[in-house]
């Protein structure tokens, strides 16, 4: 029961089926990597789990600790412990990181209870230090004018502040140089533990040198075509996605 369980999921955009009968379970305490070529539907999967209104679920379900996520609004899912680190985080002009995160934390408190400001800032600064984010960022507008790397670090900062049970990290490594990658990876590793399950989406094997997964799944054209241990990532790196496509009976890119 203590798992994020994707069962026979089908998702379409218009007439186009993007996720095609995909099943995958992430247990609490586990780190699952999902690797796949561009356009295979990784971000679609992530956003559907989080509740993006643009996608039409045409089949299957996603259960979080047994609860059907599709019956919950995106903000309810989050308050129950789901987190999504976006591949392309939105800019929110005029809303400072401090106010944004305060609103997010406040939303998790019972009605009538006020967030304790001193504790809040103490925690915020601690997590910012961990992720090597300058404190001046607290008064900057969310993601506005941030570099790619700053945006990704800020996503993990939010994760660290919100303490999710299950986190989906969508290409949190893309656009990072090696130093930034190490900082982000150590941030994620510091959050690992028996009370966190992670679905780590990546295009490159590189990230998995720093965040070592328990399981690796390969996704092609909307479904998981192969699952294994962390060695699968290395094999994939060596042989390339075409190898997988051939074995999965999928058309090979020209």
């Amino acid at each position: 029961m203590q798992q994020l369980e994707i069962k026979n999921l089908r998702v379409a955009i218009g007439e186009n089926e993007i996720i095609r009968d995909l099943s995958l379970s992430v247990g609490l305490g586990e780190m699952h990597a999902v690797m796949g070529p561009n356009g295979s539907g990784k971000s679609t999967l992530a956003k559907v789990i989080a509740g993006h209104p643009d996608y039409k679920v045409t089949g299957g379900e996603v259960l979080m600790d047994g609860e059907n996520l599709f019956e919950l609004d995106p903000d309810e899912r989050a308050r129950k412990g789901l987190f999504l680190a976006f591949q392309y985080p939105s800019e929110v002009p005029g809303v400072t990181i401090a106010n944004f995160l305060r609103a997010a934390m406040q939303a998790r408190l019972p009605e009538g209870e006020e967030l304790e400001a001193t504790d809040y800032y103490a925690k915020l600064y601690e997590k910012m230090d961990l992720l090597e984010i300058d404190r001046s960022f607290t008064s900057r507008a969310v993601n506005e004018g941030f570099s790619g790397g700053e945006k990704k670090r800020c996503e993990i900062l939010q994760m660290a502040m919100l303490d999710p049970r299950y986190a989906v990290l969508d290409e949190t490594d893309s656009g990072l140089d090696i130093d930034a990658l190490k900082v982000v990876a150590s941030g994620v590793n510091s959050l690992r533990g028996p009370n966190l399950g992670v679905l780590l989406i990546t295009h490159y094997q590189r990230l998995l040198n720093y965040i070592v997964p328990d399981f690796v799944h390969v996704m092609v054209h909307g479904r998981i075509v192969r699952s294994g241990g962390k060695e699968l990532a290395l094999e994939l790196e060596e042989k390339g996605y075409d190898w997988i496509r051939e074995h999965a009976g999928e058309p090979v890119a020209a």
Partner: peptide, 29 residues
Amino acid sequence: DEDELFYLRTRGIPIKTAQHLIVTGFLNE
């Protein structure tokens, strides 16, 4: 912006509060 709103909601912020934050942010500029 729908994506902005979705972004805030994925952080657990209820829709009314999220809209309110976006509007005040817009004016704060």
